[in-house]
Nucleic acid binder design. Sequence first.
DNA 1: AACGCTGCCTGTGGGC
DNA 2: TGCCCACAGGCAGCGT
Length: 281
Amino acid sequence: MPELPEVENVRKGLNEIVVGETIDKVEVRWPRIIESPEQNVFSKRLMGQTIEDVRRRGKFLLFYFTDDVLISHLRMEGKYQLMVPEKDGRLPRRSKHMHIIFHLKSGRKLVYHDVRKFGRMSLVEKGSEFEHKSLEKLGPEPTKDAFKLEDMQEFLTRRKKAIKGVLLDQQMIVGLGNIYADEVLFLAKVHPVTPANRLTDAEEIRIHEATIQIMGNAIKSGGTTIRTYQNAFGDEGSYQNHLKVYGKDGEACPNCGNEIEKIKVAGRGTHYCPVCQPLKG
DNA sequence: AACGCTGCCTGTGGGC
DNA sequence: TGCCCACAGGCAGCGT
């Protein structure tokens, strides 16, 4: 379940290993992963293009090629793996979860692996990438420079639903998924079902600061490894060692010692401390 | 405009 | 052991 810190770790890894590689051909084994253009056009257009840079916007990876940009979302379980030939020239074995294979002129292969096939890719002309429907409505990155308290407050006044659900909405702030949304609300001491337009100024300030702090720390830690997440080198992040509430239901709250509870909010499993994050009103 | 629901997918684990 | 079902959850698309 890569959220922004995990995607950023993947981006850094890819930048070190695939920049300068040229596509020989593309093998599409599960066409639904290619949103647009149609898979044969997708493959044909990429042939001969060289990867110049790998960037990120929110949870989206952007591969900058010679003429085009590949927009790639890993969704739940997507992974990129570089397959390097052994000394005898043989490549590691294929698995049934390798759905898109980028054959490179160097003889290596960049493989997109996705057990649940939720991930999506689009190829667009360079320069038009931020007009793509998946990118055009994204909110600011969760950094001090980009994420402004006043903009967040203005957004919250228009939302009546639970703050947990609003934090998952990529229009107010990008990059939070289920894990970091729970961690942010715990640090901010806000109950996850609090209606967004009923938060006090103090609570809004705490959420804003907690978001910037947690996302920054998680990026520094290389993300969170739960289940199977790894970057392109197979390296794991370490932020799972810093989680306070996510996946901790039944355990003691690190602040007050009371039991962490798990409820369902906005259709997601939600972890919180009922003592540190009381519901008001 | 905001919001909730469904579909997309497979693997895992609990209950019986 | 094996079967069934709930659950994991990001996002697009849809209806209200």
